[in-house]
Amino acid sequence: MGRKAVLLIIWIGFVAYTIWLAPLDQPDTWSLGGKLLTLHWGKLNAIIPAIFCLMGIWPMIYACLMFADGKMQNFRAWPYFIGSNFTGVICLLPYLIFRQSHQQFFGKKDKLLEILARRSTGVSLVIGTICILAYATIAGNWQDYVQQFQTQPFVHLISIDFCLMCLIFPITSLFDDDMARRGLKDPRIFWSVALLPLFGPLLYLCLRPPLPQTDAKELFA
């Protein structure tokens, strides 16, 4: 089965599961969401805000690959990036499904691409992730989290969404194409990143070589 078929099945399954759970119909959903958005985390189990914050880290990881990739696509990457910050894989997966594989970059690297390509951006994301996980480990209550996962649809869905963000990273050819553009052909690099959820992609952003720039005229010459 092709990668895009797998991604489509995941997308359809998660959308159907989300509709079936109908989290917006639950009385506690808006209250919990409001506390997370307004940073009123004092009375929340620390693990819940931590997952919420990690769901902001993941779109940034994908953005560091998507925005360069989007230069070679027939549609923009930024609407999917913005949507993924609110709905996770529900908005991210359509980009990954409909994009075409391109293993060379051509065109002008603008300021945004320069920022996303910097190793310091990857390092900042690693530091932020470590702080978030430390907060969850020190202040969180795992027994209470398991109970909320089983009884609170919102907590249940964002937890599954986080796991899907980890799962689809090596499935999509977005990662393969980014490696190819940077001259990385060693399959050990791919598997080292793929088999280390969250921190594999983060370390890749810190260590990957710069993105070569190819003029479009040279590409089609």
Rank of each mutant, 00 (worst) to 15 (best):
K109R: 05
Y204G: 11
A77I: 03
M1Y: 04
R119G: 13
F98G: 02
K109N: 00
N85K: 15
I51E: 09
H40K: 14
A180L: 13
F14I: 01
P209I: 10
I19N: 09
L116V: 00
F190G: 10
L167K: 01
C163G: 06
T29V: 07
D25V: 05
A22V: 04
W58N: 15
D28R: 04
R76S: 14
S173A: 09
V15I: 11
L21W: 06
L21N: 06
G34C: 03
L36N: 05
S124I: 09
P212L: 15
A117V: 00
Q152M: 11
L21T: 05
W11A: 08
L54P: 08
P153Y: 13
Q100K: 15
L8M: 09
T129I: 07
Q148A: 13
L8S: 13
Y80S: 11
I61R: 14
T38C: 08
R188G: 05
A46V: 08
L195D: 01
W142A: 02
H40Y: 09
M60Q: 14
A22D: 10
L24Y: 08
R3Y: 07
A5Y: 07
F154P: 08
F190T: 04
S192Q: 09
W142N: 02
V15R: 02
L167Q: 01
L184Y: 08
D110Q: 03
L167Y: 00
M165E: 02
Y62P: 06
P94A: 15
F220E: 14
N74P: 03
Q103P: 08
L54Q: 07
C131G: 11
L93Q: 12
L7R: 01
C64S: 14
G33Y: 11
A77F: 04
D69V: 11
W20Y: 12
M179Q: 07
P201G: 00
C53Q: 10
A16P: 00
Q26V: 08
L203T: 07
W58P: 01
I115Y: 14
M1K: 05
L211S: 12
P23D: 11
P49M: 01
F86H: 14
P212C: 08
T151D: 02
T121S: 15
T137S: 11
F105N: 04
D25Q: 09
T18Y: 04
L202G: 01
C64T: 00
L198T: 15
A134R: 07
V89N: 15
E114F: 02
L24F: 12
P201L: 00
P23L: 12
G183E: 05
A194D: 03
Y204P: 06
G83Q: 13
T214C: 08
F52R: 10
G140C: 02
G183L: 11
W191K: 09
F106S: 15
G2I: 04
I51K: 07
P210H: 13
M72W: 06
P59Q: 15
L92A: 11
I168Y: 03
G2N: 10
G200Q: 03
P27M: 06
I10T: 02
I47D: 06
P212T: 13
I130C: 04
Q103C: 15
K35W: 03
F162W: 11
G122R: 00
L195M: 14
F105M: 06
I115D: 06
M66H: 02
L65W: 08
R181H: 12
L164Y: 01
A139V: 07
M179D: 03
Q143I: 03
S192R: 13
I160V: 08
F106L: 15
M1F: 08
